[in-house]
Amino acid sequence: MALAEPFTAKDKVAASAKRRNLIPFLGLPAVAVIVCFMVGPMLIALSFSFLTAGVYGGVDLPFTIEAYRQFLFERNLDDSLSFDNSYLVIYGRTILLAGLTVVISIVIGLPTAWYMATRTPKVRERLVLLVTIPFWTSLLVRTYCWVLILRDQGLANGLLREIGLITEPLPLLYSYGSILFGLVYSFLPFMILPIYAALEKVDFRLIEAAYDLYASRAAIFLKVVLPLAKPGVIAGSMLVFAPSVGSFLAPDLLGGGKKLMIGSLIQMQFTTSRNWSFGAACAMLLMAVVLTVLVFAVRQSKKERHA
């Protein structure tokens, strides 16, 4: 509508007729952006996954499904194929960790967002700023900082030793726990902000109404706050799940690269392993997984809206 604002009253009729002719083309820039930056790269990756890997990186003809075969089967010396689940394990581990990241983010994010949404507008603004501040520095730097804090000679262990709680350093790094910690740390704001946005719009009188209608605190939360926060929780879950699945910083730096995750696997194929087509195939499979989860989540929320 903003595009159709008349500039002067005199030109209004002619201009609006002219504009009407332009309407089918007004979406072009958006279409161009989508094609250039989203569909295009995706198609390139898709085609790479069906090409033969070049010896020094890159891809060559002919077309083949070798990359996808490699994902499930190992080629023995005699050229026979045997089933190999090591990549499936990586995928399972990744989805499990990403799923746990989502759950932990909800558990931490929901009360945080509720707290933020129930402050005065001035305090709210500041809290939103506080949540977004970490985005101003590189995730790489911030993740590396956690390495410095959590390693054996790091801040955390040093502090614990100083106050005499421990004598030997605790193994805080290079475990599933530290990867999970890193993922939650990295993506928690993506959970807090959408939930906050959903709760901020909630009329506080609804809480009073529930309280007035004999609801306990628990019932108010379960029957009123949670349902109203749900769109935010769903959006937040998608926003946290997708980057968690593809993340390689936290697994590499905090997991020590020993517990391989999909993100690291893909990154490795394009760098040290120089197997671009396998990397592309892994990425395509990852996308398939994420899309399946998203479609499922959207369907679920739609179904409940109609129920």
């Binding site: 009188r205 609804l206 009073e208 109404a209 529930a210 007035d212 209608l213 009123v224 349902p227 109203l228």
Partner: peptide
Amino acid sequence: VNTVFQSYALFPH
């Protein structure tokens, strides 16, 4: 005691 709110405050969900 129950209240009828000025804005009705019906649960939208």
